[in-house]
């Protein structure tokens, strides 16, 4: 109980399965196909071919995160105003789709948005015709669907811990509901917002398959590219993975500057 010995298996485990793989990615990213040291894969990964994909991925992730935040914040706020038993039920309703397989959730949107699919049929009855799949908007919708609960829950958790006395004090001092929200609830909910942004942005920037199934030809994301290129060129694939990893780390560090670490866990 008081010795460090119990952690030895896990420390060895982390060495083999966490540290060595990361080092291997780093080493592979700086080698050519013969195995000799070469900056070429990195140069390629930063080249024009992939720069567009990287920027597009970040753009989609940013858009999805922003929409998630806009949709989730009111939900979290409304949750705090419910009775505890209703809170549980509503939380459950929001979480249930998350327990479905990730791929099946994309697939559900695919059939909904398809040509002659449910949405197309319903809107055709109203005389509206159009294509709803194969564009950036469809990718963003899919992404929002995948990660919306990740935004609701941390914001709700932080908001529900706000001391009720603070709100009463604000009310006693003459604040109306809007002022209470603006001056007390909103500032105190920021740590939740920050961890929500982190939990949505990181997976949506690096995900694959969403764009492949819902997006058009131009909607390739960095995850899809890494998946494909690894079949033919592990070196460039590793270089791209490293760039993605570093971008995510930089993002996390920036987010950490805004909020405290405790809220993320």
């Amino acid at each position: 109980m008081k010795s460090k010995k119990l952690s030895i298996p896990y420390i060895l485990w982390m060495l083999v399965f966490t540290m060595i793989p990361i080092v291997m990615i780093g080493l592979t990213a700086f080698r050519d196909k013969s195995g000799a040291f070469s900056p070429e894969p990195m140069m390629k990964a930063f080249g024009t071919e992939y720069r567009g994909v990287l920027l597009h991925s970040l753009w989609i992730a940013l858009l999805s995160t922003a929409i998630c935040l806009l949709l989730a914040y009111p939900v979290a706020y409304l949750l705090t105003r419910m009775k505890p038993s209703t809170q549980n039920t509503v939380q459950l309703i929001i979480m249930i789709p998350m327990w479905m397989n990730f791929l099946l959730r994309i697939y559900a949107w695919k059939i909904l948005l398809q040509k002659d699919g449910a949405l197309d049929m319903a809107l055709s009855l109203l005389g509206i015709h159009g294509t709803y799949i194969g564009n950036t908007a469809a990718v963003v919708v899919g992404m929002v669907y995948e990660y919306l609960p990740f935004m609701v829950l941390p914001i709700f958790t932080v908001m529900s811990k706000i001391d009720g006395n603070l709100i009463e004090a604000a009310q006693d001092l003459g604040s109306n509901d809007f002022a209470v929200f603006r001056k007390v609830i909103f500032p105190l909910s920021i740590p939740g917002v920050i961890s929500g942004i982190t939990m949505v942005f990181v997976p949506s920037a690096s995900t694959f398959l969403v764009a492949e199934h819902l997006g058009g030809i131009d909607d390739k994301m960095i995850g899809d590219v890494i998946d494909q290129i690894f079949l033919t060129d592990q070196n460039v694939g590793s270089a791209l993975s490293m760039i993605l990893m570093i971008l995510i780390l930089v993002f996390l560090i920036i987010m950490n500057l805004f909020g405290d670490e405790e809220a993320i866990a």
Partner: peptide, 15 residues
């Protein structure tokens, strides 16, 4: 937890 799934998958595949 913080590293993207795809990076973890790829790195374990290399290992």
């Amino acid at each position: 937890i913080i590293s993207p799934d795809i990076v973890m998958g790829v790195s374990l595949m290399l290992l």
